[in-house]
C-alpha cells in the first residue's frame, strides 16, 4: 500500500503524460494464458474484461487514467470497434487476452494485432437486449440472473453479442440499443433495461371466439292457438253474439272447400280459423296467431327460428310424397338368432 502510493506520487512528480493511452498488442484467446484453469477460462469468456501485461499498468499509471479503466478496441484491418474493461494485468508481455466472443465480434484470430486505447464512456441510462434463444423465457427470475451476470461486464457496445452462463447453458444477448451513447459504462449505474422478443419467437395468434347468436327453435303453435281460442270461446258465450256472413262457399270444380266462420262480438274482435282438413288436401299449416295479452310498459321480442310459410309447405309436401312411396310398416322388427350370446 505504502509502496503503491509512493509509486503514484513518483509518477505524478514526473509530470504525468498527456493525451490518451494508446498501444498495440498481439491478441490471444483465454486458452493461451499461461497456467490457465478451466474456471479462469470461463470467467474470461463469459465476461467483458480483458487481460493486459503488467507493463501496461505501469504505463497507464503515468497517464492518470480515470477509474474505472475502460478501453476501446479496434481491429485496424477491418475497422471494427468495441469496448471493454480490464480484469487483471497478468498477461504475457506484448499480449492481450480477450474473451472469445470479443475476438469473434472484432473478427480476430489468435496472433492478430489489435489497437487498444483508453476510453471514457458515459454511464448507461437505458439498454435494450435481444435474447438469442428461447431458453431465456424459461428462466424463473430473469431480472436476478441479469443483475448478477452483467456484473462481469464493465461496459456495453451497440451490436455486441454478449454471452452469459446460466444453469449449465450459454445465453447470448444482442445489444440492440443503448442510451445515452452507442457505448456506455454499466458500473455503478441505474439502467432502464428493456427486451426485444427472443430470436425465433413467434407471436401466438389470438383465438377469436365466435359470438353466440343461435336462435332457439320456435315453440309449438298450440301455445298461441290456445290463447286465441280462449278469447274466441269467451266471445262465443256472450249474450249479444251474432253470426254474420254465415254460409259456405262453393268451388266451380265441385270440390268441397274448408268451412270457416266469423264471429263478431260487441267490444272484442277475435278472428279464428277452424281448419278442417279434407281427404284430398294437404295437412294445414298452423295459422299465425297474435298474442293480444299485451300490458303497457313491457314489450318483449323473442327471436325464434321460424321458417317461411312456403318452406314449411314444401317440407310437408315432400314428407307426404315420401310417405306415399314408403313401403308398409307391416312385418317390421328385429330378428334373433339362436347364437345371440355371441
Amino acid at each position: 500500500m505504502q509502496a503503491w502510493i509512493q509509486q503514484g506520487l513518483h509518477g505524478m512528480q514526473m509530470g504525468g503524460r498527456v493525451g490518451n493511452y494508446d498501444q498495440t498488442f498481439v491478441v490471444y484467446g483465454p486458452v493461451f494464458l499461461p497456467n490457465a484453469t478451466q474456471s479462469k477460462i470461463s470467467e474470461i469468456n463469459y465476461g467483458g474484461k480483458i487481460l493486459l501485461p503488467s507493463s501496461a499498468l505501469n504505463l497507464l499509471m503515468q497517464y492518470n487514467i480515470p477509474m474505472p479503466m475502460l478501453f476501446k478496441l479496434t481491429n485496424m484491418a477491418v475497422q471494427r470497434v468495441t469496448h471493454c474493461g480490464v480484469l487483471e494485468f497478468s498477461a504475457p508481455e506484448g499480449q492481450a487476452i480477450l474473451p472469445l466472443w470479443m475476438m469473434q465480434q472484432l473478427g480476430l484470430d489468435d496472433g492478430d494485432t489489435i489497437r487498444i486505447e483508453s476510453a471514457t464512456l458515459p454511464k448507461a441510462t437505458f439498454a435494450k437486449l435481444k435474447p438469442m434463444s428461447l431458453e431465456f423465457l424459461n428462466i424463473t427470475n430473469p431480472k436476478a440472473v441479469l443483475e448478477v451476470e452483467l456484473r462481469k461486464y464493465a461496459c456495453l457496445t451497440k451490436n455486441d453479442r454478449i454471452p452469459t452462463s446460466y444453469a449449465g447453458q450459454t445465453l447470448e444477448f444482442l445489444v440492440v440499443d443503448l442510451k445515452p451513447a452507442n457505448s456506455v459504462c454499466i458500473i455503478e449505474c441505474d439502467v432502464n433495461l428493456d427486451f426485444d422478443p427472443p430470436e425465433g419467437y413467434v407471436e401466438q395468434p389470438r383465438q377469436v371466439t365466435p359470438a353466440v347468436t343461435a336462435k332457439p327453435p320456435a315453440p309449438d303453435a298450440s301455445a298461441f292457438i290456445g290463447a286465441g281460442q280462449k278469447a274466441g270461446g269467451s266471445g262465443g258465450t256472450g249474450q249479444n253474439a251474432t253470426s254474420v256472413f254465415g254460409g259456405a262457399g262453393r268451388r266451380l270444380d265441385g270440390k268441397k272447400k274448408p268451412s270457416s266462420s266469423v264471429s263478431l262480438s260487441d267490444g272484442t274482435g277475435v278472428s279464428t280459423s277452424n281448419a278442417a282438413p279434407v281427404a284430398n288436401d294437404l295437412p294445414a299449416i298452423p295459422p299465425v296467431v297474435v298474442n293480444e295479452d299485451y300490458k303497457p310498459g313491457r314489450v318483449s321480442f323473442l327471436r325464434y327460428d321460424y321458417k317461411r310459410v312456403d318452406v314449411l309447405e314444401k317440407e310437408l309436401r315432400e314428407k307426404e310424397a315420401s310417405k306415399a312411396g314408403q313401403p308398409s310398416n307391416v312385418f317390421r322388427g328385429g330378428n334373433r338368432t339362436l347364437r345371440g350370446a355371441r
Binding site: T140, A144, A167
Partner: peptide, 11 residues
C-alpha cells in the same frame, strides 16, 4: 440471493 434461488429452481 435471488440469483441463487432462480438458479436452483431452474436446475
Amino acid at each position: 440471493k435471488e440469483y441463487a434461488e432462480s438458479l436452483a429452481k431452474d436446475i
